[in-house]
């Protein structure tokens, strides 16, 4: 009705154009990187490439994928992501379930809850944590990338709240009356109901593990055991190619701008691939709310 007024129509069009440009601005850097990585090195080095490849070639990808170090770091990233996500999800489910009980059912509940929440407020910081990991003999072990952050208090609180609000109490009590214990109830009642939230949490955890680089930098000293994000950090950001264990010729090839952008794009690809699934989860609620006009 009121949208028919001329001034609002003009605003509407300008607004749409402005927001579309802003949205494009968010992905332009990725398009630029992709364009450079698919261009000939001559064109890339002469800064001719904008948003479309010039002298199209996949050579940069061949060089990158032909490097053993890069491939093995990819494998390490996949492994840490898998291990880390499974472990983190398991811990959050168990702790989230126990903390979802009321204090009259489970007296220790509040004590445990504060024990976990306190770690969100205060931490020993970088250096003491590093010393603990080192004393445990985890340096250069994949567990140094998985264990320290395995217990996500934030995800646990999300799950706990979900368990409290979305699992019907009656269902749980029926299970108890039928003789099911806590483990059984968690497995057969709670988990099936919470699959969508578990999926969301897993996806976010996966992205977090895939992107994590700093723990690799401090806990892994043997560069052959770097996860991909850490390797990328040393070669693209620090411009230190010693971790690639390659000859002088190859260093020349690897420091090429097209190769660097190819590496960046390969590291981004898994995120882009899971992004549609991620987005479905967090946008759904919002879109559902806003369509009723």
């Amino acid at each position: 009705m009121h949208y028919r007024s001329t001034s609002y129509r003009i605003f509407s069009i300008l607004n749409g154009v402005f927001l579309s440009l802003l949205a494009l601005l968010c992905i332009l850097p990725l398009i630029h990187v992709l364009a450079v990585s698919l261009s000939s090195s001559a064109a890339a080095d002469a800064n001719l490439v904008k948003l479309w490849p010039i002298g199209f070639t996949t050579e940069a990808y061949m060089v990158t994928l032909g490097n053993d170090r890069f491939i093995s770091s990819f494998g390490i990233s996949v492994l840490r992501t898998a291990l880390g996500t499974v472990l983190s999800l398991l811990l959050s489910i168990l702790v989230g379930y126990a903390l979802s009980k009321e204090t009259n059912e489970f007296k220790g509940r509040n004590g445990y809850a504060w024990f976990f929440v306190f770690t969100m407020l205060f931490s020993g910081g970088l250096i003491p944590t590093y010393i603990v990991v080192q004393k445990l003999g985890l340096i250069n072990s994949i567990w140094a990338l998985v264990l320290p952050g395995a217990m996500s208090v934030y995800n646990t609180i999300l799950l706990m709240n979900f368990f409290r609000t979305s699992v019907p109490k009656a269902l749980e009590e029926a299970a108890f009356i039928d003789g099911a214990g806590h483990f059984r109830t968690l497995w057969s009642i709670y988990l099936p109901i919470s699959l969508p939230s578990l999926a969301t949490i897993s996806l976010f955890t996966m992205v977090g593990h895939w992107n994590a680089w700093f723990d690799g930098l401090i806990y892994i000293t043997d560069t052959a055991k770097y996860p991909m994000s850490t390797l990328l950090q040393t070669i693209v950001v620090q411009r230190d190619l010693s971790s690639m264990s390659v000859s002088a010729d190859e260093i020349q090839a690897l420091s090429n701008r097209t190769v660097k952008t190819a590496q960046i794009f390969i590291a981004t690809l898994p995120i882009i691939l899971v992004y549609p699934f991620l987005q479905r989860f967090f946008v759904k609620g919002i879109v559902l709310g806003s369509v009723k006009e």
Binding site: F122, G124, P128, L147
Partner: peptide, 9 residues
């Protein structure tokens, strides 16, 4: 191990 122990550090 990974949150409280470092606090002693």
């Amino acid at each position: 191990i990974f949150c409280y122990l470092p606090m002693f550090g």
